[in-house]
Design a binder for these strands. Structure first.
Length: 490
RNA sequence: GGGGGCAUAACUCAGUUGGUAGAGUAGUUGGCUUUUAACCAAUAAGUCCCAGGUUCGAGCCCUGGUGCCCUCACCA
């Protein structure tokens, strides 16, 4: 940007001040009404005087008459400013008005000769003078994806539907919180800065505390602090919060993203499935996905998804059988299937075998899971933090929830045996994988040793849920400020 | 991180075979009292992403860099 401010607008600003007006007054009218409310009540309120405030989004000018599209958060209303209705002083201000300025107008509600519901301004004032031009293209507005993300403030006011999409995100969060509160969950906040990270396999961001002269990690998951709270007797807790993973960026990945995790004492993964269903339905209703007939649907990536409960369930084992064509425990058949799918042969040991089964599952089964669907009971060997099924220890009490072709949630009957937990954490650290945690969280083991009741826990990716419910293909479109490399400065 | 694509006025985009920069909108000025992509006339506006190279001459060709998009990998 070569100019911080548009020279022509600085001239208009000077002209406005020449007329004796404050271009940035501190006070706005305290009786302003929203455009959408006025239009909704227009029939009954015709002739009444009202006050609106908002941004000038369009202007069709005549010598002594101007039609202005005034936009506020609720929508748009046409304001008619004509010389006959205005003081000479107010009419003079009209010549200093630009698109993008923020104004207020007061006057009667009245239809134009063409029948357009309008507010006829008898008084008006500039509340904020804009010093840059809004996007000029009338069809496309601001369409460059980079500019839209970098200048979200412009995208929000200039492009129809963008603001509504983010307000729907806000409504989704509210809807989910209501479900938690309805079930007696307490919302908690746990540390973002941690000296040991854990709860997932992911590369962390690192930072440094100056006064303590110590390295710190930004959390990659919410899990471990929340389980400590369960130990302490906070029996139903949830946290909606930002987590940070130092990995690739894509249409589905941002370095920081929002997760909700919740834990419920004396519950198991069945209870978590009920919660997921209720949360997703609650969020969908808040997002406006419910039709008049009661059905709840959303369209995502040109595909319609029916979110009307109950959600389908499928056993991991059955889904594997259906799409891979063999039982996951049939070692010879799995080896053959891996060969067909182009995988290398599996390594030695139970973990390697079941990992190889899961590779096939992710490659051949997951793409078929449109959702909403719960995939129940994962191989125990690949679920170190999960209780095994009592009647069938090969399988673990874990489900993943799929929607829109993406994994949205992951839940367990949480492992609470401190000795097994310690062993698993030590294995992880011994593992050469650079993304595994590099230190055992002994304090977490100590917490479990004091006794954590049987607990159901679940994590759900909020950004992806918002994508599906608002029909946005890219995570960037549901993040107000997605990660961007710095703009080159002059 | 790998591969591919894009980058021209404030916005959205043209730009032919390499011959020295265009449109619409927005802006400015003037006209206009019922428009809604208002209209009419005039007018200003460009480091053609950056740095090199080839060439008599580069928006266009070549090399390197930057940013964004798509895709693969990693993940949620």
């Amino acid at each position: 940007m070569s100019e911080h401010f548009h020279p022509d607008r600085l001239d208009k600003l000077a002209a406005l001040r020449e007329l004796g007006h404050d271009a940035y007054p501190a006070r706005s009218p305290d009786n302003r009404e929203m455009a959408a409310d006025l239009l909704a009540a227009f029939e009954t309120r015709q002739g009444e005087t009202a006050t609106v405030c908002g941004r000038v989004l369009g202007r069709r000018g005549y010598g002594k008459l101007a039609f202005i599209d005034l936009g506020d958060q609720s929508g748009k209303i046409q304001v008619v400013l004509e010389k006959a209705n205005l003081s000479a002083d107010d009419f003079a201000i009209l010549s200093t008005l630009n698109l993008g300025d923020i104004i207020t107008a007061t006057g009667p509600l009245q239809a134009t000769q063409k029948g357009q519901p309008s507010l006829y301004g008898h008084q008006f004032a500039i509340l904020t003078k804009a010093l840059l031009n809004p996007p000029a293209d009338k069809q496309d507005g601001l369409s460059d994806t980079e500019l839209r993300a970098r200048m979200r403030y412009v995208d929000l006011f200039a492009n129809e539907g963008v603001r509504d999409g983010f307000l729907r995100r806000s409504a989704i969060l509210r809807g989910m919180r209501e479900v938690f509160h309805k079930h007696g969950y307490a919302e908690v906040e746990t540390p973002v800065l941690q000296s040991i990270y854990g709860g997932a396999n992911a590369a962390p961001f690192t930072t440094h505390h100056n006064a303590l002269d110590m390295g710190l990690y930004l959390r990659i998951a919410l899990e471990l602090p929340l389980k400590r709270l369960i130990v302490g007797g906070m029996e139903r807790v949830f946290e909606m919060g930002r987590v940070f993973r130092n990995e690739g960026i894509s249409t589905r990945h941002n370095p920081e993203f929002t997760m909700v995790e919740w834990y419920e004492a004396y519950a198991d993964y069945e209870r978590m499935a009920e919660m997921v269903q209720e949360l997703v339905v609650g969020a969908a209703i808040e997002a406006g996905c419910q039709k008049e007939c009661g059905a709840i649907t959303t369209t995502f990536r040109s595909e319609v998804f029916d979110l009307t409960p109950p959600f389908a369930r499928v056993q991991y084992r059955d889904a594997f059988q259906e799409h891979v064509g063999c039982d996951p425990a049939d070692r010879d058949a799995v080896a053959a299937a891996r060969k067909t799918a182009g995988f290398d042969s599996a390594g030695e040991g139970d973990y390697a075998y079941w990992k190889s089964v899961n590779d096939l599952f992710e490659e051949l089964v997951e793409p078929q899971l449109r959702g909403p669907v719960f995939v129940m009971d994962y191989p125990a060997a690949i679920c170190p933090l999960t209780k095994a099924k009592t009647d069938d220890p090969e399988w673990a009490e874990r489900f993943e929830f799929f929607l829109g072709g993406m994994e949205l949630a992951n839940a367990y009957s949480e492992l609470n045996d401190p000795q097994i937990q310690l062993a698993k954490l030590q294995e992880q650290v011994a593992d050469a994988d650079p993304e595994s945690p590099n230190q055992v969280d002994y304090d977490f083991v100590r917490a479990l040793a004091y006794g954590m009741p049987p607990t159901g826990g679940c994590g759900l990716g909020i950004d992806r849920l918002v994508m599906v419910l608002t029909g946005n293909d890219s995570i960037r479109d549901v993040l107000l400020f997605p990660h961007m490399r710095p703009e080159t400065q002059e």
